[in-house]
């Protein structure tokens, strides 16, 4: 359990720094704003109580907001992600159940499982975030483009993250 805590804290710091000082600074295109920080929330221990998960996510969101000038927007998307995470975990449950595997990033759950889990969560997070940022659906095609292009880049980075850190850290 302590190991898992340490892992989560390291991940929190690492991904936060990467998001704020690298991803937020890189300017790819007006429509591409990738966000990798939702991984912090996705990979929190599976049996974490919902209220704990939501409060922690709120905190993560507020931190991102404070540095990217969007007070409340990231926080709301994070809380949303935390709220739907249990349902998504239920949805993508492996046929044999989770078997007490605490860490959703564990290699025992398999690469394919992780990708489908991250796909759903990141997509929902992006839809929520960009809709709130645009403050409505008045320009649907543009909003759709922003969501889709950012999502693809974010997802690519999530996959890279998984490939990089799989062997070393995830096997607990």
């Amino acid at each position: 359990m302590n190991r898992l805590l340490g892992l989560n804290i390291t991940r929190f710091i690492g991904l936060m720094l990467f998001q704020l000082f690298i991803l937020n600074e890189i300017d790819l295109h007006n429509f591409i704003n990738p966000y990798i920080y939702p991984l912090i929330i996705l990979l929190m221990p599976r049996t974490l109580k919902p209220w704990m998960l939501m409060l922690l996510s709120f905190f993560v969101g507020i931190l991102i907001d404070g540095y990217s000038n969007t007070l409340g927007i990231h926080a709301s998307a994070c809380v949303f992600l935390a709220f739907i995470r249990p349902a998504v975990l239920q949805l993508v449950q492996p046929r044999l159940g989770y078997n007490d595997i605490e860490d959703p990033g564990s290699a025992k759950l398999g690469f394919q499982w992780f990708i489908s889990y991250a796909f759903i969560c990141i997509l929902l997070h992006h839809i929520f975030y960009f809709s709130v940022e645009a403050w409505g659906f008045s320009n649907l095609p543009q909003l759709g483009m922003r969501i889709l292009s950012s999502f693809l880049v974010s997802m690519l980075m999530v996959i890279l993250y998984r490939l990089f850190f799989k062997t070393k850290i995830f096997d607990s």
Binding site: P50, W51, S76
Partner: peptide
């Protein structure tokens, strides 16, 4: 169903934050 209420509560907090900053104004925080 406390998660639902907590969710609604936290989203309301976010909404207040956004509106207070007109959601496009620089955060003087």
């Amino acid at each position: 169903s406390y998660p639902l209420f907590l969710f609604i509560f936290l989203e309301l907090v976010c909404l207040v934050l956004m509106i207070n900053h007109h959601h496009y104004q620089r955060v003087s925080y």
